[in-house]
Design a protein around this nucleic acid. Structure first.
Lengths: 220, 220
DNA sequence: TTTAAATGTGACAAAACTGTAAGAGCAAAT
DNA sequence: ATTTGCTCTTACAGTTTTGTCACATTTAAA
């Protein structure tokens, strides 16, 4: 489950937002103690933060700046002013996106989706369906279950993810895996696919890698 | 030079935009033939596209959809004011970012910069000095020589690369390596650093990981 | 249905990976 | 000079990874 932290002082707004997020399959956490926001963030480790720039006690932009010194967690800034200066500052201080209050809930959801999609492309973490995939470590988490992939398995899955909904040929995968090594049996690929499927089965994703005989594989 | 294609029917707007981009060190190309946009794009292969969703003759959204079937070139959508439907559609059809008309030129530049920065990070290849580092495979090439890093070694090197010219504490590295595992001797980190240094020595990078006693390590 | 090609699986042994232990090295402070 | 607190290195053994092999199974065409 993707964890989103809400930093917002207005109780009504934050409660509504929490509901909206939970209705759309996110885990929403409202930050209660605005005073030590940074500590809470590093403790809870959300996947994304929705930050109201006008929260009292602390300066939203300052918080963002400080956060950026220690973390790359994506942040969507919320402001009530339609002030381009704020927007520019938010982006240059490291906000990943920006939305003006009052906002259309569906737009916010789309922006969240877009930010997470971007994150997929730029970080070690990829979200796929309800899986959280750490490419570098080869760890895939689904709720409480997790599986650990080997380097080969991760290379295969990455290739499939990169070309989602497109067929990836066995040759392409062979090249990704053993680019310029001596001769390696093409059955080695089949075996690695098999091992990958077995691990995925454990987290309930038995059939996401589909064989297209004579063509290759496709991630569903 | 980074090539940006402008797809926009209003001559004045596109000319202004071209100037703006060229003044900021981009190569700007205005697409003249809106009818066969897709062909032109695949021929010119821009690094980024700025696409007005309201161009005549063709449907901007449809163009984006078709483009996405064959290419991942980043697209920034320009939408008209107040059209939340357009905004929603742009994102879900694969735009990398969007901006609402009329826009502040500096905001557009910031967004272009942000999209391009993301692009740089999305590849598995990192260049460092004269090294070519494949993070996924853990292969580092220098001229003809190459070394192969293990997962642990790659995690350490990635962390150091990510915070280039900054000290990374031993604790940070421990967290990256063994986040929520049981107790692991902190000497394990020292050993892994040692192994990494030994491999780097083979390609002539003996001293790039510098110890800052009591503080951590820094990549020179 | 038969056949041939493509794909899948379980077992195995060699190679690679990795945390620990024990002791050495080293720099700053006393 | 000695002590103290870090950091480094080497050796080791348990574990994991991985390509191959030998069959098994599936698919689509004949």
């Amino acid at each position: 489950m993707i964890k989103i932290m809400i930093i917002e002082d207005d109780k009504i707004t934050s409660k509504e937002l929490k509901e909206l997020l939970e209705n759309n399959n996110y885990e929403a956490i409202i930050l209660e103690n605005l005073e030590n926001a940074l500590d809470e963030i590093t403790k809870i480790k959300p996947d994304l933060i929705i930050l109201d720039i006008n929260i009292p006690y602390i300066n939203g932009q300052l918080l963002l700046q400080n956060l950026r010194k220690v973390s790359d967690i994506p942040v969507i800034m919320v402001t009530s002013k339609n002030s381009e200066t704020d927007e520019a500052l938010s982006i240059s201080y490291g906000a990943d996106d920006y939305i003006t209050k009052p906002y259309n809930p569906n737009i916010l959801l789309l922006r969240i989706g877009a930010v997470l999609k971007r994150l997929n492309h730029s970080s070690n973490i990829i979200f796929y369906k309800d899986l959280k995939i750490n490419i570098q470590k080869g760890i895939i988490k689904k709720d409480d279950k997790e599986i650990i992939l080997t380097k080969n398995e991760m290379i295969i899955l990455s290739s499939l993810l990169k070309h989602q909904n497109k067929i990836v040929t066995r040759d392409e995968l062979m090249t990704e895996l053993w680019d310029n090594e001596e001769f390696i049996s093409d059955n080695a690929l089949t075996v690695n696919i098999s091992r990958l499927r077995n691990k995925l089965k454990y987290i309930g994703y038995e059939n996401i890698i589909d064989t297209r005989k004579g063509q290759g594989y496709i991630l569903l």
